[in-house]
Protein backbone atom coordinates (compact mmCIF):
# COMPACT_ATOMS: atom_id res chain seq x y z
CA UNK A 1 0.00 0.00 0.00
CA UNK A 2 2.71 2.48 1.04
CA UNK A 3 4.87 1.36 -1.88
CA UNK A 4 1.99 1.96 -4.24
CA UNK A 5 1.23 5.38 -2.83
CA UNK A 6 4.87 6.48 -2.89
CA UNK A 7 5.12 5.32 -6.49
CA UNK A 8 1.98 7.29 -7.08
CA UNK A 9 3.62 10.41 -5.66
CA UNK A 10 6.67 9.92 -7.87
CA UNK A 11 4.53 9.43 -10.95
CA UNK A 12 2.37 12.40 -10.07
CA UNK A 13 5.36 14.67 -9.44
CA UNK A 14 6.98 13.61 -12.70
CA UNK A 15 3.80 14.18 -14.66
CA UNK A 16 3.42 17.59 -13.00
CA UNK A 17 6.95 18.53 -14.03
CA UNK A 18 6.25 17.25 -17.54
CA UNK A 19 2.99 19.19 -17.77
CA UNK A 20 4.78 22.25 -16.45
CA UNK A 21 7.42 21.95 -19.17
CA UNK A 22 4.78 21.54 -21.87
CA UNK A 23 2.94 24.54 -20.47
CA UNK A 24 6.17 26.56 -20.74
CA UNK A 25 6.44 25.55 -24.39
CA UNK A 26 2.82 26.59 -24.99
CA UNK A 27 3.52 29.95 -23.41
CA UNK A 28 6.69 30.47 -25.44
CA UNK A 29 4.73 29.63 -28.59
CA UNK A 30 2.07 32.15 -27.54
CA UNK A 31 4.54 34.99 -26.88
CA UNK A 32 4.27 36.42 -30.43
CA UNK A 33 0.46 36.37 -30.16
CA UNK A 34 0.59 38.00 -26.74
CA UNK A 35 2.55 40.95 -28.13
CA UNK A 36 -0.75 42.57 -29.04
CA UNK A 37 -1.67 42.40 -25.37
CA UNK A 38 1.47 44.31 -24.36
CA UNK A 39 -0.71 46.66 -22.32
CA UNK A 40 -1.78 43.71 -20.21
CA UNK A 41 1.89 42.84 -19.66
CA UNK A 42 2.51 46.38 -18.45
CA UNK A 43 -0.49 46.15 -16.15
CA UNK A 44 0.75 42.85 -14.72
CA UNK A 45 4.23 44.33 -14.33
CA UNK A 46 2.58 46.90 -12.13
CA UNK A 47 0.88 44.23 -10.02
CA UNK A 48 3.70 41.73 -9.64
CA UNK A 49 6.59 44.21 -9.80
CA UNK A 50 5.75 47.64 -8.55
CA UNK A 51 3.32 46.34 -5.92
CA UNK A 52 6.07 44.09 -4.52
CA UNK A 53 8.49 47.00 -4.14
CA UNK A 54 7.54 47.93 -0.61
CA UNK A 55 8.06 44.49 0.88
CA UNK A 56 11.28 44.00 -1.14
CA UNK A 57 12.68 47.35 -0.01
CA UNK A 58 11.82 46.88 3.64
CA UNK A 59 13.22 43.35 3.72
CA UNK A 60 16.34 44.39 1.83
CA UNK A 61 16.99 47.17 4.30
CA UNK A 62 16.61 44.88 7.30
CA UNK A 63 18.70 42.08 5.79
CA UNK A 64 21.49 44.58 5.11
CA UNK A 65 21.22 46.01 8.63
CA UNK A 66 21.33 42.66 10.36
CA UNK A 67 24.25 41.57 8.17
CA UNK A 68 26.11 44.74 9.10
CA UNK A 69 25.48 44.08 12.78
CA UNK A 70 26.43 40.39 12.69
CA UNK A 71 29.49 40.81 10.51
CA UNK A 72 30.78 43.73 12.55
CA UNK A 73 30.51 41.53 15.62
CA UNK A 74 32.35 38.58 14.03
CA UNK A 75 34.95 40.64 12.19
CA UNK A 76 35.81 42.60 15.29
CA UNK A 77 37.25 39.34 16.70
CA UNK A 78 39.93 39.57 14.03
CA UNK A 79 40.19 43.32 14.11
CA UNK A 80 38.84 43.31 10.59
CA UNK A 81 35.74 45.46 10.89
CA UNK A 82 36.95 47.48 7.94
CA UNK A 83 35.94 44.51 5.78
CA UNK A 84 32.28 44.79 6.88
CA UNK A 85 31.23 46.57 3.70
CA UNK A 86 32.96 44.00 1.52
CA UNK A 87 31.37 41.02 3.23
CA UNK A 88 27.92 42.62 3.36
CA UNK A 89 28.10 43.35 -0.36
CA UNK A 90 29.34 39.90 -1.32
CA UNK A 91 26.84 38.09 0.89
CA UNK A 92 23.96 40.13 -0.50
CA UNK A 93 25.00 40.01 -4.15
CA UNK A 94 25.89 36.37 -4.36
CA UNK A 95 23.23 34.79 -2.18
CA UNK A 96 20.82 36.79 -0.08
CA UNK A 97 19.79 39.29 -2.75
CA UNK A 98 18.54 36.92 -5.43
CA UNK A 99 17.39 34.14 -3.08
CA UNK A 100 15.48 36.22 -0.53
CA UNK A 101 13.97 38.35 -3.29
CA UNK A 102 12.81 35.21 -5.11
CA UNK A 103 11.31 33.74 -1.93
CA UNK A 104 9.52 36.99 -1.15
CA UNK A 105 8.43 37.26 -4.77
CA UNK A 106 6.98 33.74 -4.68
CA UNK A 107 5.10 34.58 -1.50
CA UNK A 108 3.90 38.00 -2.55
CA UNK A 109 3.40 37.88 -6.32
CA UNK A 110 3.43 34.14 -7.09
CA UNK A 111 0.57 33.29 -4.78
CA UNK A 112 -1.57 36.17 -5.98
CA UNK A 113 -1.01 35.17 -9.61
CA UNK A 114 -1.95 31.56 -8.84
CA UNK A 115 -5.03 32.57 -6.87
CA UNK A 116 -6.09 35.09 -9.49
CA UNK A 117 -5.80 32.70 -12.43
CA UNK A 118 -7.39 29.90 -10.40
CA UNK A 119 -10.36 32.11 -9.57
CA UNK A 120 -10.61 33.28 -13.17
CA UNK A 121 -10.90 29.64 -14.14
CA UNK A 122 -13.37 28.88 -11.34
CA UNK A 123 -15.61 31.77 -12.39
CA UNK A 124 -15.46 30.82 -16.09
CA UNK A 125 -13.53 33.96 -17.01
CA UNK A 126 -10.98 31.85 -18.86
CA UNK A 127 -13.75 30.06 -20.74
CA UNK A 128 -15.38 33.41 -21.45
CA UNK A 129 -12.18 34.63 -23.06
CA UNK A 130 -12.03 31.53 -25.19
CA UNK A 131 -15.60 32.31 -26.22
CA UNK A 132 -14.69 35.89 -27.05
CA UNK A 133 -12.00 34.49 -29.34
CA UNK A 134 -9.26 35.71 -26.99
CA UNK A 135 -6.53 33.14 -26.38
CA UNK A 136 -6.28 32.90 -22.58
CA UNK A 137 -2.70 31.61 -22.76
CA UNK A 138 -1.69 34.71 -24.70
CA UNK A 139 -3.87 37.09 -22.69
CA UNK A 140 -3.76 35.68 -19.13
CA UNK A 141 -0.75 33.39 -18.80
CA UNK A 142 1.98 34.98 -20.90
CA UNK A 143 1.65 38.59 -19.64
CA UNK A 144 1.88 37.40 -16.02
CA UNK A 145 4.79 35.14 -16.87
CA UNK A 146 6.69 37.85 -18.75
CA UNK A 147 5.95 40.41 -16.05
CA UNK A 148 7.44 38.06 -13.46
CA UNK A 149 10.53 37.39 -15.54
CA UNK A 150 11.09 41.11 -16.07
CA UNK A 151 10.23 42.18 -12.52
CA UNK A 152 12.37 39.66 -10.65
CA UNK A 153 15.85 40.95 -11.62
CA UNK A 154 14.75 44.54 -11.12
CA UNK A 155 13.39 43.73 -7.67
CA UNK A 156 16.60 41.86 -6.83
CA UNK A 157 18.64 44.93 -7.78
CA UNK A 158 16.47 47.14 -5.61
CA UNK A 159 16.78 44.63 -2.78
CA UNK A 160 20.58 44.61 -3.08
CA UNK A 161 20.84 48.40 -3.21
CA UNK A 162 18.71 48.70 -0.08
CA UNK A 163 20.73 45.93 1.56
CA UNK A 164 23.98 47.83 0.96
CA UNK A 165 22.31 50.94 2.30
CA UNK A 166 21.20 49.03 5.41
CA UNK A 167 24.70 47.66 5.94
CA UNK A 168 26.11 51.16 5.55
CA UNK A 169 23.56 52.56 7.95
CA UNK A 170 24.52 50.12 10.70
CA UNK A 171 28.23 49.88 9.95
CA UNK A 172 29.06 53.52 9.32
CA UNK A 173 26.35 55.54 11.01
CA UNK A 174 25.89 53.44 14.14
CA UNK A 175 29.02 51.37 14.66
CA UNK A 176 31.45 53.97 13.46
CA UNK A 177 33.31 52.27 10.61
CA UNK A 178 35.01 54.91 8.50
CA UNK A 179 32.86 55.83 5.51
CA UNK A 180 35.76 55.79 3.07
CA UNK A 181 37.04 52.45 4.37
CA UNK A 182 33.58 50.93 4.00
CA UNK A 183 33.29 51.92 0.36
CA UNK A 184 36.90 51.52 -0.75
CA UNK A 185 37.20 48.00 0.64
CA UNK A 186 33.91 47.12 -1.04
CA UNK A 187 34.87 48.58 -4.40
CA UNK A 188 38.28 46.93 -4.21
CA UNK A 189 36.83 43.45 -3.81
CA UNK A 190 33.38 43.31 -5.43
CA UNK A 191 33.49 42.56 -9.14
CA UNK A 192 30.91 43.42 -11.76
CA UNK A 193 30.84 40.11 -13.62
CA UNK A 194 31.31 37.70 -10.78
CA UNK A 195 29.12 39.40 -8.19
CA UNK A 196 26.60 41.66 -9.91
CA UNK A 197 26.06 39.96 -13.29
CA UNK A 198 26.48 36.33 -12.25
CA UNK A 199 25.39 36.76 -8.66
CA UNK A 200 22.41 39.07 -8.91
CA UNK A 201 21.26 39.22 -12.51
CA UNK A 202 21.55 35.69 -13.85
CA UNK A 203 20.28 34.08 -10.72
CA UNK A 204 17.31 36.39 -10.40
CA UNK A 205 16.36 35.99 -14.06
CA UNK A 206 16.36 32.20 -13.67
CA UNK A 207 14.42 32.48 -10.41
CA UNK A 208 11.96 34.83 -12.11
CA UNK A 209 11.34 32.32 -14.88
CA UNK A 210 10.88 29.43 -12.46
CA UNK A 211 8.66 31.22 -9.93
CA UNK A 212 6.46 32.79 -12.62
CA UNK A 213 6.14 29.51 -14.49
CA UNK A 214 5.15 27.63 -11.35
CA UNK A 215 2.68 30.33 -10.28
CA UNK A 216 0.97 30.60 -13.67
CA UNK A 217 0.97 26.85 -14.23
CA UNK A 218 -0.54 26.09 -10.83
CA UNK A 219 -3.23 28.69 -11.32
CA UNK A 220 -4.02 27.60 -14.84
CA UNK A 221 -4.28 23.89 -14.13
CA UNK A 222 -5.93 23.93 -10.72
CA UNK A 223 -9.34 22.31 -10.33
CA UNK A 224 -11.82 25.20 -10.55
CA UNK A 225 -13.03 24.99 -6.97
CA UNK A 226 -12.22 27.07 -3.93
CA UNK A 227 -10.44 24.08 -2.44
CA UNK A 228 -8.41 23.61 -5.60
CA UNK A 229 -7.34 27.25 -5.63
CA UNK A 230 -6.27 27.04 -2.00
CA UNK A 231 -4.15 23.95 -2.67
CA UNK A 232 -2.67 25.49 -5.79
CA UNK A 233 -1.59 28.58 -3.86
CA UNK A 234 0.14 26.45 -1.26
CA UNK A 235 1.79 24.37 -3.95
CA UNK A 236 3.11 27.51 -5.62
CA UNK A 237 4.92 28.55 -2.46
CA UNK A 238 6.25 25.08 -1.67
CA UNK A 239 7.36 24.22 -5.20
CA UNK A 240 8.85 27.69 -5.77
CA UNK A 241 10.83 27.61 -2.53
CA UNK A 242 12.27 24.18 -3.24
CA UNK A 243 13.06 25.10 -6.83
CA UNK A 244 14.71 28.38 -5.81
CA UNK A 245 16.99 26.83 -3.23
CA UNK A 246 17.89 23.80 -5.35
CA UNK A 247 18.55 25.95 -8.42
CA UNK A 248 20.55 28.36 -6.30
CA UNK A 249 23.00 25.58 -5.54
CA UNK A 250 23.20 24.47 -9.18
CA UNK A 251 23.60 28.02 -10.47
CA UNK A 252 26.25 28.86 -7.90
CA UNK A 253 28.21 25.78 -8.93
CA UNK A 254 27.95 26.77 -12.59
CA UNK A 255 28.57 30.48 -12.25
CA UNK A 256 31.39 30.30 -9.74
Amino acid sequence: MSVASSENIVVRSLSQIGDCGLFLLRMIAAIPRSMRHYRETIRQLWFVGAMSLIIIMVCGLFVGMVLGLQLYDVLSIFGGTSATGTVVAIAIYRELGPVVTALLFAGRAGTSVTAEIGLMRATDQIAAMEMMAVDPIAYVAVPRFLAGVIAMPLLACVFCALGIFGGHLVGVSWLGIDNGTFWSNMTATVEVVKDVINGVLWKSIVFGIVVSLIAVFQGYTTPPTSEGVAYATTRTVVASSIAILALDFVLTAFLM
Partner: peptide
Protein backbone atom coordinates in the same frame (compact mmCIF):
# COMPACT_ATOMS: atom_id res chain seq x y z
CA UNK B 1 -0.49 51.71 -14.75
CA UNK B 2 1.90 52.53 -17.54
CA UNK B 3 3.41 55.45 -15.62
CA UNK B 4 3.76 53.45 -12.40
CA UNK B 5 5.27 50.50 -14.23
CA UNK B 6 7.65 52.82 -16.04
CA UNK B 7 8.77 54.28 -12.71
CA UNK B 8 9.29 50.78 -11.37
CA UNK B 9 11.45 49.78 -14.33
CA UNK B 10 13.49 52.98 -14.10
CA UNK B 11 13.99 52.39 -10.38
CA UNK B 12 15.12 48.80 -11.01
CA UNK B 13 17.63 49.82 -13.67
CA UNK B 14 18.88 52.68 -11.51
CA UNK B 15 19.52 50.19 -8.72
CA UNK B 16 21.33 47.90 -11.16
CA UNK B 17 23.45 50.76 -12.44
CA UNK B 18 24.24 51.79 -8.89
CA UNK B 19 25.27 48.25 -7.91
CA UNK B 20 27.39 47.77 -11.00
CA UNK B 21 29.21 51.07 -10.99
CA UNK B 22 29.32 52.36 -7.45
CA UNK B 23 29.90 49.26 -5.34
CA UNK B 24 32.25 47.23 -7.54
CA UNK B 25 35.75 47.50 -8.89
Amino acid sequence: YAVGTGLFIVLGFTALGYLATQTTS
